[in-house]
């Protein structure tokens, strides 16, 4: 039944990366990263329920260099996926589809997710009294 000469998905090896295509795969990558990163949230809650020692261990990990890098990556993935997710929801409603619009709202998502990441870390350090 399937016809033999149907067009295939773009061959990624010969397909020039564009803002729109890179952002699309980034949505998937950040979704997967967030799902894995959510483990940290679960450990954090379990530790808070377990006791002060366990909680201290996880807070110490979060404060370490690797912990901070993971949290920073998680926060950026979250804001990117959240902003681009809103972009997806507009598309689902049939809005913002045109070529120009897709580039415009794409750039907006990139700028907004970087800004929100920086803002939340500045806020975090400010409430620690580190600024």
């Amino acid at each position: 039944m399937a016809s033999q000469n149907r067009p295939l998905s773009p061959h990624l090896q010969v397909y020039k990366p564009q803002l729109t295509s890179v952002m699309s795969i980034m949505h998937r990558a950040t979704g997967i990263a967030l799902a894995v990163g959510t483990l940290l949230l679960v450990f954090w809650l379990i530790a808070a329920a377990t006791g002060e020692r366990t909680f201290g261990d996880i807070q110490a990990f979060n404060a370490s260099l690797i912990g901070k890098l993971l949290l920073f990556g998680w926060s950026f993935a979250l804001f990117y996926h959240l902003c681009n997710g809103i972009r997806h929801l507009f598309w689902d409603a049939g809005k913002g589809f045109g070529l120009e619009a897709a580039y415009r709202n794409g750039r907006l998502v990139v700028v907004a997710s970087i800004a929100l990441t920086v803002l939340s870390w500045v806020w975090g350090y400010a409430s620690m009294g580190a600024l």
């Binding site: 926060s75 959240l82 997710g85 997806h88 929801l89 939340s120 975090g124 409430s127």
Partner: peptide, 26 residues
């Protein structure tokens, strides 16, 4: 889509709360 919509306010609230409490103790 419905879980995505629900997550927008919930996650903004969560990240903002954690940022506001950074460094707080057990």
């Amino acid at each position: 889509r419905m879980t995505a919509v629900a997550l927008i306010p919930l996650l903004i609230w969560f990240v903002a709360s954690i940022a506001a409490m950074a460094g707080a103790d057990y």
